[in-house]
């Protein structure tokens, strides 16, 4: 029993614990006890299915990335809004993007980022995790979109996950 009393995913446990303190209206003895129990049981239940523990080597780079994505989301919405309201027909295009990332978690983050940022939705990941199919709403040039994604999002992610 005692050897089961460990936290396989300390970050997940910490997030759950802090979130529970907020949910239960302020810190009290009861909320700390229950928070610890939840932070222990929930990661333990799902631990067998996490791929190899995602090694966030440079965790301190995450806030910068998140801020950049957040800003891009706002810009993206204004772009899409302008396009929707203008009478001009959009010029949609499907783009194949070759991934340099290997880590499944990083690929998912990249795909989600692409979906939320200017004019692109990631439609599919190929079976062997090497290609990403992207639908661009209003693209001038294929290479331009690929370069933007590569420099703006994939490079920082590559630095974070090695």
């Amino acid at each position: 029993m005692l050897d089961r009393l460990r936290f396989p995913h300390p970050w997940l446990s910490l997030t759950l614990f802090v979130m529970w303190q907020f949910l239960s209206d302020g810190i009290s003895g009861g909320s700390i006890v229950l928070g610890l129990i939840l932070a222990w049981i929930i990661p333990l239940m799902t631990q067998g299915f996490w791929p190899d523990p995602p090694t966030l080597l440079k965790a301190w780079k995450t806030p910068a990335y998140l801020l950049r994505v957040l800003w891009d989301i706002v810009v993206a919405s204004v772009d899409v809004a302008r396009l929707i309201l203008s009478p001009r027909e959009p010029r949609p295009m499907f783009i194949c993007y070759t991934l340099e990332l290997k880590d499944p978690l990083a690929i998912s983050i990249l795909a989600s980022t692409i979906s939320l940022t200017p004019g692109t939705v990631s439609a599919d990941v190929s079976d062997d995790n090497t290609l990403l199919l992207i639908h661009a709403l209003d693209a001038e040039d294929e290479q331009e979109v690929i370069d933007t994604i590569r420099n703006r999002y994939e490079k920082p992610l590559l630095e974070m996950f090695q």
Partner: peptide, 14 residues
């Protein structure tokens, strides 16, 4: 596919 862009960005930000 173009309709997919509206809800994912504009509505989420809204």
């Amino acid at each position: 596919y173009t309709r997919l862009h509206g809800p994912t960005k504009a509505t989420t930000v809204g």
